[in-house]
Amino acid sequence: MGHYLSIDIGGTYIKYALIDERHRLYHHQKTKTPENIDQAILKQIDTIVEAVADKHNIDGIGISTAGIVDREKGEIIYAGPTIKDYKDTAFKRELTEKYKLPVHVENDVNAALLGEIWKGAARNQNNVFCITLGTGIGGAYYDHQLMDGSHHQANSVGYLLYEPETRTNYEGRASTAALNKLIAKELGEEISAIAVFERAKNGDETCSSIIQSWTKEVAKGLSQIILLTDPKCILIGGGVSAQGDYLLEQIQNQLELFLPDNFLKTELKIAELFNDAALYGAVYPFFDVAVV
């Protein structure tokens, strides 16, 4: 078993690391994600691979990325506005041809879920849904395998619950970007979400009201996921998951409002691996391990 290069492409940063035969991540690095003009992201990935391969023997490349991925082709088949002109970026073809190495490409939330099932909060569990709360909202579902849908578009939960009156969808009301807008409206733009959570924990009524209002929107979407998939567990990831048990308690208190009486059996858990989850998940297919 050799060493593999794992790369996680986000809207702000590209993070990467090597993983060894004992499944240990090392040599963590990150660089700013370039504006994607003239395939700048693909070129940046090529630069990273070339630099790492020059110093280390690697046996494969795993890529976690925003956007909808055709994992067989290893390319982006749909991307929202976060990354410009990203559709049709053919990572697998380009990198395999140049480096003669196997390349695996996976959606970032799918990769994070695989990482958490392999090494994190849902270790060796089945029937797990993962939701990431960030600038947008992403979803992934694992039931003996990743469940993609016929067109690789399943679990696009950020588009749920569209309201014609406000012209907003689920991520427009329940993402951390939406939370920041709510905070700016109530308290001003200089107050951070972290500060609002701390004040709410210490009994500040205005901050508590903001958190309750936002977690109610989060709970609305989670209720739809529960009704449709009945997962054993829902993992909550994204930067806001650092709020841990307090965040879970706030969501749990709101969740039963949107479900029938005595219906809630799904366990809510905080993702454990944070930035490493997608790095583990991106290279998971290279390791001969049975998760469940």
Rank of each mutant, 00 (worst) to 15 (best):
L95M: 06
E75N: 13
D85Q: 10
P81H: 06
G120Q: 05
D108M: 04
T82E: 14
K100Y: 09
L95W: 01
T89D: 15
P102F: 13
K119W: 04
N107F: 04
E94Q: 11
A79T: 09
A111C: 00
N110L: 04
R93A: 12
K92P: 11
L114K: 01
A90D: 14
R93G: 12
I117N: 03
T82L: 14
A79N: 11
V103M: 10
E97W: 08
K92T: 14
D85A: 09
R123I: 02
K98I: 10
K84C: 08
I76K: 08
V109N: 07
A111D: 00
E75F: 02
T82F: 05
I83D: 01
L113W: 08
I76W: 06
E106Q: 07
D88V: 02
A112V: 11
E94W: 00
G80P: 05
E94A: 09
H104T: 12
I117T: 06
W118F: 06
A112L: 09
A79R: 01
L95F: 08
D108K: 02
A122R: 00
G80F: 02
D108L: 01
E97D: 15
R93H: 12
G80E: 07
N110K: 04
N107I: 00
A121C: 09
I76V: 15
A111P: 02
P102E: 13
T96G: 11
I117R: 06
L95D: 01
T89G: 15
R93F: 04
H104R: 03
Y86K: 05
K119A: 04
R123Q: 12
H104D: 07
L113P: 00
E75V: 03
A122K: 04
D108F: 08
A112C: 10
T96I: 09
R123L: 05
N110E: 11
K100N: 15
R123F: 07
Y78M: 03
E116P: 08
L101C: 10
D85G: 05
V109F: 00
I77E: 14
D108R: 03
I77Y: 11
E97Q: 15
K92G: 12
A112T: 13
N110D: 13
A121Q: 05
T89M: 13
N107V: 06
Y86A: 11
L113K: 06
P81I: 03
D88N: 15
I83A: 08
W118T: 02
K119N: 05
A90V: 03
T96W: 08
V105L: 03
G120S: 01
R123Y: 01
G115D: 07
A79V: 06
I77D: 14
A121N: 06
A79P: 03
K119I: 02
K100A: 15
I83N: 09
G115A: 02
T89P: 14
T89S: 15
A121V: 00
G80V: 01
T82Q: 14
T82I: 11
Y78L: 04
N107Y: 09
L113R: 00
A122W: 04
E94T: 12
G80H: 00
H104V: 13
I76L: 14
W118N: 06
A90I: 07
